[in-house]
């Protein structure tokens, strides 16, 4: 009786905080866009906005996969290295060799084309994810440690494999995946948005998605509810590997080059996107929509700061502050909801 009336009465205020908490990243993004558009009218130019989206599409793709991982209370620090190794493999497949050849054209066309390259890139990414997932589920090593190891291993493999240098110069049908446009929309943006929609549907509306949240929320309860906890944990590392592999391919297409040093430090931007988007590092709570907003927020911030001639060193500082603010705000809202 008192329980019920208490819930009802406190409902109003708690509901308000709940709504604010849920939409905080989006509100913040819109406010930021408003400020930048006043400071620099060029900001709202569609070309600029698509440019922002293209810039975030690479880390954004990986952030989609990272959302799955973080929902299970895991983490993957190795995504930048996976991106590099799979991008390098994609390049080698496209070229048909490891030769650092800059030549283009029909006479040199001995490679396997963009689809084979993409498939190889994704396969390598997922293989990396599988190895790490194995370490986490079977060997019971914490994800932080396994993927910290992976960060080093996959980077080292890339450097060894490529002898430290880039593989550059692809066919136009390969480059299209990074540089092409469909109407006014850059291809990487389309890939990112389609992937985001698929991930959203998977997490929100499928049995698998439900299981991911359950495993992240309470692994012991999930096991006692008959879920195959290890298999689900393995799957999220395969998913993040898939996206890191795909991103490696798209990045190499965009740059027309696969660099052995590509993606260094990407894990920070990726994890920041997910966390700013409201996904809990403790697992069980978060969404793809939040991650898309989080990734966009970082992109808008960087772009706006560049347009306003703010030093790139300062950008880093600002992003760091925003990560902390976002999580602090989330905490604040949670205590309000409970009061």
């Amino acid at each position: 009786m008192t329980d019920a009336s208490r819930t009802m009465a406190a409902g109003g205020e708690a509901m308000m905080w709940k709504t604010i908490g849920r939409f905080a990243p989006l509100i913040f993004l819109l406010v930021l866009m408003l400020i930048f558009s006043i400071l620099e009218p060029k900001f709202l130019n569609p070309t600029n906005l698509f440019n922002v989206m293209r810039q975030i599409s690479i880390t954004g793709l990986i952030a989609l996969g990272m959302t799955f991982v973080i929902l299970t209370a895991g983490i993957d620090l190795s995504v930048g290295s996976i991106l590099a190794v799979s991008g390098m493999v994609a390049a080698a497949v496209a070229k048909g060799s490891l030769g650092n050849t800059l030549s283009l054209g029909e006479d040199e066309a001995v490679g396997y084309g963009p689809f084979a390259a993409m498939a190889a890139s994704i396969a390598v990414g997922m293989f990396c994810g599988f190895i790490q997932g194995y370490g986490i589920t079977w060997l019971k090593v914490p994800p932080f440690v396994v993927t910290l190891g992976g960060l080093s291993i996959f980077r080292g493999l890339t450097l060894w494999f490529s002898n430290g240098g880039p593989i550059s110069g692809f066919e136009s049908d390969y480059r299209w995946w990074g540089q092409g446009m469909v109407g006014p929309v850059p291809v990487p943006v389309i890939i990112f948005l389609v992937a985001a929609i698929v991930c959203h549907v998977v997490l929100r509306h499928t049995r698998y998605g439900r299981h991911v949240y359950a495993v992240g929320g309470n692994p012991e309860a999930a096991r006692l509810s008959g879920l195959a906890v290890d298999r689900i944990i393995m799957s999220v590392y395969l998913i993040v590997g898939f996206f890191a592999g795909l991103a490696g391919f798209v990045l190499s297409a965009r740059l027309n080059s696969s660099e052995a040093v590509a993606g260094i430090g990407y894990e920070l931007t990726v994890i920041a996107s997910v966390v700013i988007g409201g996904t809990s590092l403790f697992g069980g709570a978060g969404s793809i929509a939040g991650t898309v907003v989080g990734a966009t927020l970082i992109g808008v911030l960087v772009n706006g700061l560049v347009l306003n001639n703010v030093s790139s060193y300062i950008q880093s500082v600002v992003i760091g502050l925003i990560i902390i603010t976002a999580v602090a705000f989330d905490r604040f809202v949670k205590t309000r909801k409970r009061a």
Binding site: R210, Y213, G217, N218, E220, A221, A222, L224, S225, S280
Partner: peptide, 18 residues
């Protein structure tokens, strides 16, 4: 709390998880 409930999740999801 420790072995059965998913406290961050809705009643619906707690009900149907198995």
């Amino acid at each position: 709390k420790l072995q059965a409930l998913f406290l961050q999740l809705a009643i619906r999801r707690n009900f149907s998880v198995a």
